[in-house]
């Protein structure tokens, strides 16, 4: 079955509890739970969600993860084709057997949505294996499942009746750095 998954992050509802970040970390990267510096590249946990805070003006926060672009710069620069768009689900994924660890994808991602695994020294990103296993069972990825503020939605963008399409239709959404032509599938409701 062909689907085209997308995410919605509702900044106006998020209360910054970080359940999504923690759940992403322990479930997708259990091997790094006790690592004192699991994600030096981002300076945070071993997680696919990055905290972006604006402290000046009217403070603002986005919890950012892979945008699953339709035209992803990371895929464009990958020399081996390890980074690719899986057209069966719309995810930008990495075939780790092919990945040589050149980190071009990391520099190319204008969202800084990839980080480097401290042991494997390879790029990591949403969607993690544990979440993929959930999706395969028809469940929500962890970040969406645990969110207490209804700030996260996940679903098939090609299905007009999906929850995510309903939210996109009813709320004012933006796509981040869309002007770069990346065609992200990560919708943000600005707070």
């Amino acid at each position: 079955m062909m689907v085209r998954y997308g995410f919605l992050y509702d900044e106006s509802r998020c209360i910054s509890c970080y359940a999504c970040i923690v759940a992403c970390s322990s479930n997708n990267y259990p091997e790094l739970m006790e690592d004192p510096n699991p994600n030096i590249f981002w300076g945070t946990m071993a997680t696919n969600i990055r905290i972006v805070i604006k402290e000046q003006g009217r403070p603002e926060q986005i919890l950012l993860s892979c945008q699953h672009c339709e035209r992803p710069p990371c895929v464009e620069v990958c020399p081996t084709g390890a980074s690719h768009v899986d057209r069966s689900n719309g995810f930008v994924e990495i075939d780790y057997d092919k990945c040589i660890g050149c980190k071009a994808c990391i520099t190319a991602c204008p969202y800084n949505a990839r980080w480097i695994h401290p042991i494997k020294l390879k790029p990591m990103k949403c969607i993690g294996d544990a979440c993929k296993a959930r999706i395969a069972k028809g469940e929500m990825p962890f970040c969406v499942e645990v969110c207490p503020a209804e700030a996260r939605v996940f679903g098939d963008l090609d299905d007009p009746n999906s929850e995510i399409n309903k939210r996109i239709a009813s709320a004012k959404t933006v796509k981040i750095k869309e002007y770069l032509g990346t065609e992200p599938k990560f919708y943000v409701v600005r707070g």
């Binding site: 464009e76 081996t80 084709g81 050149c102």
Partner: peptide, 25 residues
């Protein structure tokens, strides 16, 4: 500098013409 130097052959096997690094190789 690569994490998997032996895998550089994949640059040729999976050659991605969009990638400058592939062309570098």
């Amino acid at each position: 500098d690569l994490s998997n130097p032996g895998g550089f052959i994949y640059i040729f096997s999976g050659f991605n013409p969009d990638s400058r690094i592939a062309w570098m190789a």
